[in-house]
């Protein structure tokens, strides 16, 4: 049999051509800047490892690291939980729910609204004195004094997590459903005939078969989540208030680069974040595939 594997290069060549020019070049330039004291304009001077040394002792970066994880983690758990439950319901052959297209579209809506409108909306809902949330809670009698949601570190972080969940669960749901629809119906029919209950069908068929898709969601959500930035920036004063609790890694990076003009240091922060993401992604890959590493398919 003649070797067709060289075709692989043809298939991936266009991608790499464009990728090299438009993605890798700017990113490599950022790497160069991380060794300079560049301010975003004018000339850059090489400063060696100074930026990285500073990064290692920067308490604000450490603070940002933990904040980002807290906010992303809560959001991810909720969002995946919701997406999976919804997928389980909609893929259940016994329930046979109607209107999946409708619900899918509606659940995706929050993702369509520009982030500044989202921030504006929740800023008003969560307002201390006049927010609808506090008014409602006070009317029902759960609280007697209004809670300043965005002024307490814990509730501020939780607010961001919940807004993120609201924005993204529809997205995850669609992706999960796309994966579910790729699974052959034969499996489910066989399961039905064997009398498997819902949970068994879901955990023994859907989840294992969805593994590649779930891996995709986890990795992309991690990458996106660790780059969380616009909501915390818009919801309070843009520098992480209250008490630094909304200071996320990319917000910190952004402020260093574009507010304080420490462009070189911001580049180092970017690479710090990059290494962190890399490490955690590796853990996810290992966790999912570590024991049963598949052989690459031979042609």
């Amino acid at each position: 049999m003649k070797n067709l594997n060289r075709y692989g290069y043809f298939f991936i060549a266009p991608f790499w051509l464009v990728f090299l020019v438009f993605s890798i070049y700017p990113v490599a330039l950022t790497f160069y800047y991380s060794f300079t004291n560049y301010t975003g304009s004018g000339e850059a001077q090489l400063v060696g490892l100074a930026n990285y040394k500073r990064l290692l002792t920067d308490t604000y970066f450490v603070e940002a690291f933990f904040n980002t994880w807290k906010i992303w983690g809560v959001n991810f758990a909720l969002q995946m939980g919701l997406a999976l439950i919804l997928a389980m319901i909609f893929s259940d052959m016994r329930v046979k729910l109607k209107g999946i297209a409708f619900f899918r579209a509606i659940f995706y809506l929050p993702n369509l609204i520009t982030i500044s409108s989202v921030a504006l909306l929740f800023g008003i809902l969560l307002d201390w004195q006049h927010g609808s949330l506090n008014m409602m809670l006070m009317k029902v009698g759960i609280i007697s004094d209004p809670i300043n949601w965005l002024n307490e570190p814990t509730s501020a972080q939780l607010s961001i997590s919940l807004i993120l969940t609201w924005m993204w669960f529809g997205h995850s749901f669609i992706v999960v459903m796309a994966g579910v629809s790729g699974i052959s119906k034969d499996y489910y029919e066989a399961a039905l005939i064997d009398g498997a209950n819902r949970w068994q069908t879901f955990s023994k068929i859907t989840i294992p078969l969805l593994k590649p898709i779930l891996l995709y969601i986890m990795i992309t959500s991690l990458i996106g989540g660790l780059q969380l930035f616009d909501l915390p920036m818009l919801l309070t004063d843009g520098i992480g208030s209250p008490d630094g609790s909304l200071n996320t890694m990319v917000l910190y990076l952004y402020n260093q680069a574009f507010k304080y003009n420490n462009y070189g240091y911001a580049a180092a922060v970017a690479y710090g974040l990059f290494v962190i993401t890399l490490i955690f992604s590796a853990f996810i890959f290992k966790g999912m595939y570590g024991k049963e590493r598949k052989q690459p398919r031979q042609v």
Binding site: S23, Y25, P26, T30, I219, F229, V250, L253, A257, L278
Partner: peptide
Amino acid sequence: LVMMMVPGQLGLIGF
């Protein structure tokens, strides 16, 4: 995959 993890905000000037 690794390249996706570099935050894009700073690539703007290079781009």
